[in-house]
């Protein structure tokens, strides 16, 4: 009995060896994984589409995979990164469900010689090589410049945001600075706390508009207050009198742009995040003899993927996000 099971183990080991050596026969094959939370969401599907396109551009031997939990759970992402590290993939793209949780697993992958590039949401405390995402100050700045174009010095702006997250503070600061630079006579009349919620934004903006009849623009610093602002304007029966600058292109925002209730939205570029992230990871995997030790390399540490101000004419392509699986 004992000897039989011993033979069985040897056989199994042999089978595993043969199976494991199959991919390595194709000498050039490389595998890159993208780890996200909320897997299946439109935003990260756009990012993965960028990664797929970049991989195809590099060559047929690049294989990519989309991994991660469907929930918002950074610890499950960390586990995916650990598994990719154990498999010895050639590079990892990841977006951080929160800024701290994944640090150890990212550092582990780096220590194992696997390049890790973060996109969209950074983990600045980790050893990650690079980050490709929106520079939030610049994003707010673009919105401020667009509002200056709409109304010039006559712009009277109410801002909806909530205290806490660093990136929202940067967006608001960028908005205020660039609006002031482009239209010195324009004014941010009030900033309200929407508590991060659509219904909170509706209530707060309704009150703000009543207290400040001069407001003619509302800037939503994140995805939720846009529809809330539209509802507030509807509440007060002043549709068309207020220009709303929303953030992101969630479906309700797109519908409201189409119906004319929201004038434009600040569109981040998840496709480019995935595309650039893939190139950065590939670049890090394949250092050249020239760049070694110079501090230069075929990858940058921070890449601003920029934003576009999307109006009614720009939104059609965004209505049908790519799907995978």
């Amino acid at each position: 009995m004992k000897s039989v099971s011993r033979y069985l183990i040897v056989l199994l080991l042999l089978a595993a060896l043969v199976a494991g050596s199959v991919p390595s026969m194709a000498q050039d094959a490389e595998t890159y994984g993208m780890v996200v939370f909320l897997k299946g969401s439109e935003f990260f599907n756009w990012a993965y589409a960028g990664m797929v396109d970049a991989a195809a551009r590099i060559g047929d031997h690049i294989e990519v995979q989309l991994l991660g939990p469907a929930e918002w759970d950074a610890s499950l992402e960390a586990r995916e990164i650990e598994q990719l590290t154990a498999r010895g993939v050639d590079g990892i793209l990841a977006t951080a469900g929160d800024a701290e949780t994944m640090n150890a697993s990212i550092d582990g992958a780096i220590a194992a010689g696997i390049p890790v590039v973060l996109f969209d949401s950074d983990a600045p405390g980790s050893d990650r090589l690079a980050f490709a995402g929106t520079n939030n100050y610049n994003a707010g700045c673009s919105a401020g410049q667009a509002v200056a174009e709409w109304h010039g010095d006559a712009a009277r702006v109410g801002i909806s945001t909530f205290p806490g997250p660093d990136h929202l503070g940067k967006r608001v600061a960028g908005f205020e600075d660039c609006l002031a630079a482009a239209a010195p006579g324009a004014e941010v009349v009030q900033v309200v706390n929407d508590e991060g919620r659509v219904d909170g934004a509706e209530t707060a903006i309704t009150a703000m508009l009543q207290a400040n009849p001069t407001i003619n623009v509302i800037f939503a610093s994140h995805g939720n207050p846009g529809p809330g602002a539209a509802a507030a304007v509807r509440n007060l029966g002043i549709v068309g009198e207020i220009d709303i600058m929303a953030f992101d292109f969630g479906l309700p925002v797109l519908e409201l742009i189409e119906s004319g209730e929201i004038r434009a939205t600040v569109g981040q570029n998840p496709y480019l995040m995935g595309y650039m992230g893939m190139l950065l990871a590939y670049g890090a995997r394949h250092e050249t003899g020239v760049t070694a030790g110079t501090g230069f390399g075929p990858y940058a540490s921070l890449v601003d993927t920029g934003v576009q101000i999307l109006g009614p004419d720009d939104i059609d392509p965004f209505k049908n996000p790519p799907t995978f699986e």
Partner: peptide, 25 residues
Amino acid sequence: RGIATVLTSGYFVSGLPDAYKAIGQ
């Protein structure tokens, strides 16, 4: 919350019938 997240993958659900919207609006 986890089930709600997985069901929608973080998507907004929209395109609701007008008769339904009338309840709240």
